[in-house]
Nucleic acid binder design. Structure first.
Length: 488
DNA sequence: ATGTAC
């Protein structure tokens, strides 16, 4: 595939064939190289689909009703249907909602809590902090939470999101102000969610899960943007807690249920299926409407999940450091596997679009009314999770990002190596010991899982951030380092 | 990502 350079950190995949718009890939030369080494039409573990992130950018560009471009963030790597790091905005008239644009872990995202603690408060108590968090926050594959829901309770979670958790006494009212959508997505319909999906939520609310999900105690190493840091209440050496998780089994089941339904819809409406998960339905069709109502419910499930986990973190840290719960505040909570209706300027005209972000964080810039009052002037924070052994970053939305990428940003380092390959190359136990020597206390529910998450299996997060900032999509606010990491 | 399987 021929790419045209259109900027220092921007490349265009020109419109050709059945593409309705061009592809825009925001990467540096160095990050572009591995993308070009994939083989088009190559075999993959999933059954012989084209397993190449750039092919996926092109496939998304072929979907009906896509607006402006099929966009890839600097952490782009192959996903199901959409690339991870992919953004696609669609016109509600004639456009589609695509399962691959959301993925299985609906509203997977990050919440960051601020504390009044500084690095020195935690540094020599890391083992104690790690053990307490590990014991109190349920995590790992198939883990079950401390809360049991009834069927009616699950419906309430799906309708109310984080507010449900608050009603049950998990969290502080001010938390809601600092969650994307205030923690509650409109248009969620529990009736669009299967009984099987709901059954998976009965015992799973308030659990971290596995894979790349984690709970991390971090300190602020460096502040790059004083004004934004002031608005966010961040200082150097300050202790933060990052919670990375999603909608667990429920979101996964919504995705599984949607596959055959949207496959039928794709055929019914005559939309070519270019990859198993790139099935879709017109936004205004009954099938599209049902899928959206189910996804919105899944989004609420993840908001509620992170809200409960934030409470569990407070239950651990407050007594340990003699703090009131109110001293541990929600900086922000924002997802990176979502689809939603948003207002955007396209060619000078304000329009409502359905924006898919798959492994891409919403990153609204200065002035947007969706931002909390305290953040309105600088844009809301976004969280870029590095790996167990490397830095994470706090960035913010920008006006350039609003124009070029529908207000989107990066979400992490992005995998550079498959999970299978990483598992062969590293041993989890050795990895945890190595990290301990570097001052990072890791508690993992699965050593095999930890090996898959080896820092070496990811791209260099510093380069990914450099590209996002260089392209102007996001602005750098602060760099943070891990002290304690709980892995699923 | 995922009760790694219909």
């Amino acid at each position: 595939m021929e790419l045209k350079r259109i900027g220092d950190f921007a490349w265009e995949l020109p419109r050709a064939g059945e593409m309705r718009v061009p592809g825009w890939i925001f990467v540096s030369e160095e990050l572009l190289r591995p993308l070009l080494s994939g083989t088009e039409g190559g075999e993959d573990e999933g059954g012989g689909h084209e397993w190449n992130a750039l092919v996926q950018v092109r496939n998304v560009a072929c979907l009906p009703g896509i607006v402006t471009a099929s966009i890839a963030m600097p952490d782009i790597h192959p996903g199901y249907g959409f690339p991870i790091g992919g953004v696609g905005a669609f016109d509600p008239d004639g456009g589609v909602v695509a399962m691959g644009g959301v993925g299985f872990d609906i509203n997977c995202g990050v919440r960051v809590l601020t504390t009044p603690l500084s690095r020195s408060d935690v540094e020599d108590r890391k083992e104690e902090v790690a053990d307490s968090l590990f014991a109190h926050v349920p995590a790992g594959l198939g883990s079950e939470g401390k809360i049991r829901l009834t069927l009616n309770g699950v419906d309430e979670v799906l309708k109310k999101g984080a507010a449900f958790a608050l009603e049950r006494g998990y969290g502080l009212p001010e938390d809601l102000m600092y969650i994307e959508e205030n923690g509650r997505m409109d248009g969620a319909d529990p009736g669009a969610v299967s009984a099987r999906a709901k059954e998976r939520e009965f015992r799973q609310i308030g659990t971290l899960g596995s894979g790349n999900h984690y709970l991390e105690v971090q300190y602020v190493e460096e502040i790059a943007d004083r004004a934004a840091a002031r608005a966010y209440g961040l200082e150097e050496d300050q202790i933060l807690v990052a919670i990375h998780c999603g909608s667990r089994g429920l979101g996964h089941q919504i995705g599984q249920d949607a596959l055959p339904e949207l496959e039928r819809a794709s055929r019914k409406y005559g939309i070519p299926i270019r990859e198993r998960e790139l099935v879709c339905a017109p936004i205004r069709s009954p099938e599209g409407g049902k899928y959206l109502a189910a996804v919105f419910a899944g989004i609420n499930c993840a908001f509620a999940n992170r809200q409960v986990i934030a409470h569990l973190v407070r239950e651990v840290l407050a007594p340990l450091f003699s703090l009131p719960h109110g001293a541990i505040r929600t900086l922000y909570d924002v997802g990176h596997n979502n689809v939603k209706f948003e207002r955007h300027r396209v060619d000078g005209e304000e329009r409502t679009l359905l924006v898919h972000r798959k492994g891409s964080t919403r990153a609204f810039g200065p002035g947007r009314r969706e931002n909390p009052d305290r953040y309105r002037a600088v844009g809301h924070p976004i969280f870029v999770g590095g790996t167990m052994g490397t830095a994470s970053y706090i960035l913010r939305g920008t006006e350039v990002g609003m124009e070029k990428a529908f207000g989107s940003g990066i979400h992490g380092a992005g995998r550079a190596m498959s999970r299978a390959k990483a598992k062969k190359r590293w041993r989890g136990q050795e990895l945890v010991q190595d990290l301990a020597k570097q001052g990072i206390t890791v508690r993992a529910h699965s050593y095999a899982g930890a090996a898959e998450e080896a820092p070496g299996a990811y791209k260099d997060v510093d380069l990914v951030v450099e590209a996002a900032v260089g392209a102007g999509l996001n602005a750098l606010v602060a760099k943070v380092r891990p002290l304690v990491c709980i892995k699923g």
